[in-house]
């Protein structure tokens, strides 16, 4: 990770070819951020299996969370400016400003936000900014049992994340790119077993 914070644009790559749906990331998120029972800042969904067994079936696991978009639609609709983006590209919610109108939940194409029933404010993945500040990985990426999550600076061509993206250009997948949100979470498609199914993400 770069130490020159002014030029950093944090992003994450999730290689769907590696994810096994073990849920370690969802538990790590819950433990690290004390997320309330019933709320999920991060969920791993099983997509499929679908098709004709045994030779024509598709399945993959899909970790879903805030995409920390470069052009976040949640920010545009927030009436109190509670939702904002840091200079490093991390989208956050200021709970002191949020009054739970839920516009952002409707505006987010990624089902990444939810209301905390206790505080009545909106919560979501914070990319463990408190860890990024200390040059540590977010809890999900640190613990991932498969090594499918790469965190780093998208603006630094030498960073691991940029290298992984460069080496896997044929597998890039940004979800709902048609909305123009420009997610900072980039998925790498499974090399096999999700040829048609992966196109259904988010639908």
């Amino acid at each position: 990770m770069s130490t020159n914070t002014t030029t950093v644009h944090y992003g994450m790559v999730i290689d769907l070819d590696k994810c096994t749906g073990c849920q370690a990331c969802s538990v790590a998120c819950k433990m690290e951020n004390n997320v309330e029972l019933g709320l999920f800042w991060l969920r791993v969904k099983r997509m499929g299996p679908i098709g004709k067994y045994p030779d024509d079936v598709e399945m993959f696991y899909f970790p879903n969370q805030c995409m920390h978009c470069a052009e976040p639609s949640c920010i545009k609709v927030c009436p109190t400016k509670a939702t904002y983006k840091t200079e490093e590209g991390v989208v956050l919610v200021d709970a002191n400003r949020c009054f739970g109108c839920e516009y952002c939940i409707w505006a987010c194409p990624y089902e990444a936000r939810s209301v905390n029933p206790k505080t009545k404010t909106v919560e979501k993945c914070i990319l463990c900014v408190h860890k990024l500040e200390k040059n540590e990985k977010p809890a999900c990426a640190y613990t991932c049992t498969t090594g499918c999550r790469i965190i780093g600076d998208l603006n630094d061509p030498k960073s691991e994340i940029s290298q992984v993206l460069k080496n896997n250009e044929d597998r890039h997948f940004t979800i709902h790119s048609e909305f123009g949100n420009e997610p900072s979470l980039v998925y790498l498609l499974p090399r096999k077993g999700a040829e048609t199914l992966c196109k259904s993400i988010g639908r």
Partner: peptide, 8 residues
């Protein structure tokens, strides 16, 4: 450094 949900 990897750890599963049970350990965490």
């Amino acid at each position: 450094g990897r750890l599963c949900g049970k350990g965490l």
